[in-house]
């Protein structure tokens, strides 16, 4: 079955960096596995029919929070990442009931504005976040006396997180929760008439998706070792939308494929940002026009699930 082949290929890609052994390849692979939880968080929102532009901000909050928890409070890094991810989910819990009352376009605008404001706070609150000159000196990730100093170490850390979160998201999708979220998205009036509290479920999805974005941010912070507000702005929104669109929003595997093919692009086109934009744009339009279900639709038809 074709799907097996895809899983096999992904597995192969996952171990490929060790065969090549180059730092550069390891770096790209690490960025891919770090982006996977983030894009899966974004994807969960797309599944409930909401395009959230707040996720880069959640990602950033997770990143700064976990870095600061370790730097200022001396928390062990793993704990910082987990606690740090609770902060964006808390924000989602507070904002969700307000934002998610509103569907579609208004939600897009509100989440965008929220993202802008978070970005501004990162820039302006220099005492805490270091402003535009950045937050330096994030210690290396360590656990049980083991210090991660090499890129491949972080690749393994990111890979474990990505696999766990992928499995979590897949379990959600296949469970009754997935059916409920899908029902609400498909026919809200019908679902509500049967008793489902649409807002509560949407908020729950928002909270979970902010949490996984925060996890991704935490790992990113310890890997990069230096944070500036830069990556948490509009460019990442575009990147995420491209990943979901290219991979396909129909299944959880789609965004993973999207991340695998999209993340290396800026690295490959490092000196030609304008071409990268062009390729992104062409991808978005091309997939929307000819294959709304994304790459995944070439592999499995939606009904068989992945």
């Amino acid at each position: 079955m074709k799907l097996r082949v895809v899983y096999g290929l992904i597995l192969l890609l996952a171990i490929l960096p060790w065969f090549i052994g180059s730092r550069y390849i390891f770096h790209i692979a690490t960025m891919i596995v770090i982006m996977i939880p983030l894009v899966l968080g974004m994807h969960l929102m797309v599944r409930i029919g909401q395009l959230s532009l707040a996720h880069p901000a959640f990602w950033g909050v997770g990143a700064y929070a976990s870095a600061l928890l370790t730097m200022r409070l001396g928390m062990p890094p793993l704990l910082s990442i987990l606690v740090g991810a609770l902060i964006p989910s808390l924000m989602a819990l507070v904002l969700g009931p307000i934002f998610l009352r509103i569907k579609g376009v208004f939600f897009v605008l509100l989440t965008f504005a929220f993202g802008e404001i978070v970005d501004l706070v990162f820039q302006e609150w220099t005492d805490l976040f270091g402003g535009n000159s950045g937050l330096y000196g994030i210690p290396k990730f360590s656990i049980l006396g083991l210090r991660l100093t090499q890129i491949p170490h972080y690749y393994v850390l990111g890979l474990i997180a990505a696999v766990l979160i992928y499995l979590l998201m897949r379990a959600i999708e296949r469970s009754d929760i997935g059916a409920i979220l899908e029902s609400l998205n498909e026919d809200e009036m019908l679902s509500r008439s049967m008793g489902a509290n649409a807002l509560a479920w949407r908020v729950a999805a928002f909270v979970v998706s902010a949490f996984v974005a925060g996890i991704s941010g935490g790992i990113y912070a310890f890997y990069i070792g230096f944070l500036s507000p830069d990556p948490f702005g509009f460019q990442t929104i575009v990147d995420l939308i491209v990943m979901v669109t290219v991979g396909g929003a129909g299944t959880v595997l789609g965004p993973v494929l999207g991340a695998i093919v999209t993340v290396p692009l800026p690295e490959l086109l490092r000196d030609a940002r304008e071409y990268q934009l062009m390729i992104y744009g062409v991808c978005l339009i091309g997939f929307m026009k000819f294959a709304k279900q994304g790459l995944i639709s070439f592999i499995v038809d939606k009904r068989s699930g992945a």
């Binding site: 009754d176 929760i177 059916a179 049967m194 008793g195 489902a196 509290n197 509560a200 479920w201």
Partner: peptide, 19 residues
């Protein structure tokens, strides 16, 4: 079948806490 199943869970698991 999935339709009827969905109706049952939408009614009983009406919010995440009920879940």
């Amino acid at each position: 079948r999935a339709n009827l199943h969905r109706a049952a869970i939408l009614a009983r698991r009406h919010n995440p806490l009920a879940w």
